[in-house]
Write a protein that binds this DNA or RNA. Structure first.
Lengths: 339, 339
DNA sequence: CTATATATGCTCTTGATGAGCATAACTATT
DNA sequence: AATAGTTATGCTCATCAAGAGCATATATAG
């Protein structure tokens, strides 16, 4: 079955590792960014060294910890990006960019708090700086209704499959009965990329010598900060993944200090999912989950009643359950005329 | 930040593509397997050709479709495997296995029905042949309580962190309040691998010249069919992913024929998740979901009342919602003393 | 002591989910 | 044709999770 395969020039592939380091600080979700080759912000990346690294994960931990003095807690593989056209940063990793295809394995790592800054030329940035349309905490960003949707609708109309495009747009931007689904961050970014609504789209097409979209390029100036290579796509992947994960894994505690109030926890969740929660109900669900325990102590903020401090309970080391489409399993007695 | 990185010998990495082709046929979940180099069943794989393939996905579609005449519908990247020690099949992909590290990008693809067999030396096999402990449709496999758990407990006791191991085991095999979580297929396989309960564990350690576990190797003879390289791990990843996905994406219809009865649908879901569902409630949830529509026709099986035929409704092209940890968003009026 | 600002406690309503009884609609048999 | 056996469907109940929002409790700032 595979013997029939020709043996391509395998040596022309290079593997890089990318890591989205995320944290929540000052009620703000942040990512560690470095300066890319042309000054554009980039996600930390390094080459995968097959000799030194027994595992990708070990590789990521190694160079991240060595270069940032951050000790990574949670770490998870995101996706492996291998599209042609992401060769841009090739020059940074190899001496012969012309013939090499670079693929990169993206990772998501969570760090507790910025703990001051360490690494030179790296800094923590709000991720909403790169995705202004993803922050609904105050309210729906006006950018969406005023700029993004009109432009996307316009783009949809120009395509050969306007209906399909319209459906994708509606689904991604919460215009269906499902409403806004925060975990679709990647879908949204991809639509915007395709429609030429982000700077990268123009940059990449120009670099590839492709014909430019018939859209208005100036729109891409107001849709957030550009990143090097396809790093913004990787970041979108990370955001979407983390947002989704929050719902079925107790991963949020990887971002919390040892002690925290329920409001701290709520703010952290809100920072990540990008919208506000119902306070009383949030508390109820958290307390019922059994994931946290009162420490007994409490803290006093500026004014108002002091808040009780909580810590992660042991049970939280275990992951949590899932949910979804409704799979009604049989629980009680195997009696009755079942089946 | 990454300038500090030494430039390793990047050329010693080779990229392969693996595809788990899954289908449901005759109420049985199946995967396409080929004969591995030493006769062991393997998952179809091929080299990634950076020249010919603009994208991994295109690469996978290409060689799968060329070699099996199967047209892939749904396809999704699973995970990229890069651990040292998976060099075993290197000889198949390169002429110089000694210095090359092979990493492979795993994909999951869903095919409708086996549609007869096509490719030479490839065949569809029940995936429970490789994971007998994952099939709870009739009842909990006795293999778990009689063989697996005792052996795992034994293994846990031999380690330096028995409590941690015991917790992992309890969680993976449904011995916690969460019960059996079908999507933890990979967790279970990995535990068994670590404990030397699957043949691959012994094979790999022997090949690597490592010391063999102090466990009883004969146990690995009753824990399902062995696969080449780390393909069984990849398959476990695919199973877990698909099982989880069913709950929040309408992906099951990728496996159904144009017309189907609700029981057909139920059987397909059961085949995948590995346990039985409550019939009436399953129907209720499916019908309420709006994902299917009655065609008007009905079919008569051997005996009993004829069943109505359904088809996928247009709405199902859209994906479905998700659920999870409980994130109480504010829906109604932003009035009251909220926040 | 009063006005404010948070933290918490609770109640109500609605909808989803787990169970299982009751019927309907066919085929195979007496 | 009446009876059994079998699978499809219809429905009712009970329980629980989730969305809303009023009511109190406990501080800080005049």
């Amino acid at each position: 079955m595979n013997d029939a395969d020709p043996k391509p020039d395998l040596n022309s592939v290079t593997v890089g590792l990318n890591a989205v380091l995320a944290t929540v600080d000052d009620d703000t979700p942040k990512v560690l960014s470095i300066k890319g080759h042309d000054g554009t912000p980039a996600i930390p990346y390094g080459a995968f060294d097959p000799v030194e690294h027994r595992t990708f994960e070990i590789g990521v931990r190694n160079w991240v910890e060595r270069q940032t003095s951050l000790k990574l807690g949670y770490i998870e593989q995101l996706y492996t990006f291998g599209d042609k056209g992401r060769e841009a940063p090739a020059a940074l990793l190899t001496n012969d960019p012309s013939t090499t295809r670079i693929i990169s394995v993206g990772y998501l790592a969570l760090a507790r708090s910025p703990a001051e800054d360490r690494a030179q030329n790296s800094e923590w940035r709000t991720w909403y700086e790169f995705f202004p349309w993803e922050d609904w905490r105050a309210s729906e960003p006006t950018l969406i209704g005023e700029t993004i949707l009109p432009a996307l609708d316009d783009w949809a109309g120009r395509g050969e499959t306007p209906t399909l495009r319209a459906e994708r747009i509606a689904l991604a931007f919460g215009r269906t009965s499902l409403g806004w689904e925060e975990e679709r961050a990647l879908d949204r970014y991809e639509l915007m990329y395709e429609a030429g609504l982000v700077h990268e789209a123009w940059r990449d097409r120009r670099a590839a010598g492709l014909k430019l979209p018939s859209a208005d390029q100036s729109l891409s100036d107001v849709t957030g900060t550009t990143m090097a290579s396809d790093h913004r796509r990787i970041l979108a992947t990370a955001i979407g993944r983390l947002r989704g994960k929050l719902k079925y894994r107790a991963v949020i505690f990887q971002l919390m200090a040892d002690q925290f109030t329920l409001l701290d926890l709520q703010k952290a969740v809100e920072a990540i999912v990008g919208f506000s929660l119902h306070k009383q109900n949030f508390r109820r669900s958290v307390e019922q989950s059994g994931l946290v325990t009162k420490t007994g102590a409490s803290v006093q903020q500026s004014s108002g009643r002091p808040a009780a401090l909580f810590k992660v309970s042991d049970a939280a080391r275990l992951d949590r359950a899932m949910k979804g489409l409704t799979i009604p399993r049989v629980k009680r007695s195997p009696s009755a005329k079942q089946s």
